[in-house]
Design a protein around this nucleic acid. Structure first.
Lengths: 109, 109
DNA sequence: TGAATCAATAAGCAAACACTTATATAATAA
DNA sequence: TTATTATATAAGTGTTTGCTTATTGATTCA
């Protein structure tokens, strides 16, 4: 890994909203519309963050019906470091359980 | 460590020139004028990078005569992670040994 | 078919970033 | 003292970032 690759990797992570997204993904695969609820952000904002994470190969996407399910890329060479960094961060106030309780968790299969 | 602290920490690291600076500092304490030689950058550019690293508490400074000697802050809570990230990066072409050979290494004590 | 839903992309914008040159400050050397 | 050296800071500039609103594309449902 050279200096520019490392820079891209770290820049993809060093945004508090993207760290929140990654923190959620370390628990569960989620779609854009769920993130808009969890982070209270607009759909295009989330989409653009996911594009950044995808370009850094930190996440993978899987189309399922109307939804795109996003997951952590566990095959990324620096995946263990990412998990460690995420472990240093507190649990977000808004949890996936809240989503479920509000009937906003997407179930697609 | 909350999300904004983590963001500041990672943003301080995620610049290829600052990573080079940190890589050098993981070997030796150095002053600004040595970095201008090693990185081929202007003095104010280096000074401004050091300020960023200092604000993130990644480095410490010690005034010695006209020079300011910069060192890695080994007491930073995430120092071990930093060292690990730096270990993933290749050795820079321009080495401190080259500086010495050219008589440009500062000796101050 | 037509309406609704989920998501990607485009364009625009304010703020942050990484430099530059110019200048100021402080210590040393002549 | 005066000149030199090392560094910090100020101001300016082009680029990047993280959002916004508007639009488009694709899938599902009635």
């Amino acid at each position: 890994m050279d200096y520019l690759q490392m820079e891209s990797y770290l820049k993809a992570i060093s945004d508090h909203n993207r760290m929140l997204i990654l923190k959620y993904l370390s628990k569960d695969s989620l779609c854009i519309c769920e993130f808009t609820e969890l982070l209270d952000m607009t759909q295009p904002a989330i989409s653009q963050h996911m594009r950044k994470l995808k370009q850094a190969e930190l996440v993978t996407e899987e189309k399922r019906g109307r939804w795109t399910i996003w997951a952590l890329n566990v095959r990324h060479p620096q995946y263990p470091i990412l998990i460690h960094l995420l472990s240093l961060l507190p649990e977000p106030e808004r949890t996936i359980e809240t989503l479920v309780a509000e009937g906003k968790k997407v179930v697609c299969n």
